[in-house]
């Protein structure tokens, strides 16, 4: 399991130029808001957390298609399946590496973009916590979608249709939490919901993704 994690992180690091794509997209979207709406604090600050969350969601969505494709095509996944290490653990390692290279940079960049969007100072910690809990959920749900569509060429439309509805609760809880914090309310409920979703999907998504990948392998 640890060896698999090490390999996947190393591979993700080698692929960093491709994985930078969603991160750049995230920055561009957030940077375009002040340009399009005018950089007025009273206009932007209510939009800030929503804009950051929508951009993070779309950036993650962009990166999903490639999560398993290369390994599926090169026969790497079938060797993982045949190996003595449980397949779902290796899939979990892949999902974690994906989050480290796409989700984590979004979390780390978000304060900078929040500044650009005039987010009130009291929302910052809540935004960080909500993204830290929420982006892994996006990667985990996305992994299930990506594994279901791995054998579909040009499957990204199907993938989006499959995954976006499941992203909605994360988006709602994630984007309302910083807004509530701005009004001086501690959004404990929202954050606990995100944490609960993280626990749920961290447990089930690797199993589901592993099963879906296996079904796709058997059919090919």
């Amino acid at each position: 399991m640890l060896a698999a994690l090490q390999t996947e992180l190393l591979l993700a690091f080698r692929k960093r130029s491709e994985l930078a794509n969603p991160v750049v997209f995230f920055i561009i979207v957030c940077a375009l808001f002040p340009l399009a709406l005018g950089s007025r604090a009273e206009l932007l600050s209510p939009l800030a957390s929503g804009a950051i969350w929508v951009a993070a969601l779309l950036a993650t969505l962009m990166s999903l298609d490639q999560m398993f494709r290369e390994d599926f095509d090169q026969g790497v996944l079938e060797q993982m399946e045949l190996s003595a290490v449980p397949f779902y653990q290796q899939v979990a390692a892949k999902i974690f590496a994906h989050w480290v290279m796409t989700g984590l940079p979004l979390v780390l960049l978000s304060p900078l973009l929040a500044l650009m969007l005039f987010m009130p100072a009291e929302s910052y910690p809540v935004l960080l916590v909500s993204l830290l809990l929420g982006t892994p959920v996006l990667s985990l749900i996305g992994a299930v979608g990506a594994s279901l569509t791995v054998s579909v060429r040009r499957g990204s439309v199907v993938l989006s249709l499959l995954v976006v509805p499941l992203y909605i609760p994360v988006l709602i809880f994630g984007s309302t939490a910083p807004q509530m914090a701005a009004e001086g309310i501690l959004p404990l409920g929202q954050l606990l919901w995100l944490a609960a979703m993280l626990v749920l999907f961290a447990t089930l998504a690797p199993l589901a993704a592993a099963y879906a990948l296996r079904v796709n392998m058997l059919g090919s």
């Binding site: 390999t7 190393l10 591979l11 080698r14 692929k15 390994d71 095509d73 090169q74 026969g75 790497v76 079938e78 060797q79």
Partner: peptide, 9 residues
């Protein structure tokens, strides 16, 4: 047939 060798390693 497929090499299962990972290109980026």
């Amino acid at each position: 047939h497929r090499s299962s060798v990972r290109d980026r390693l």
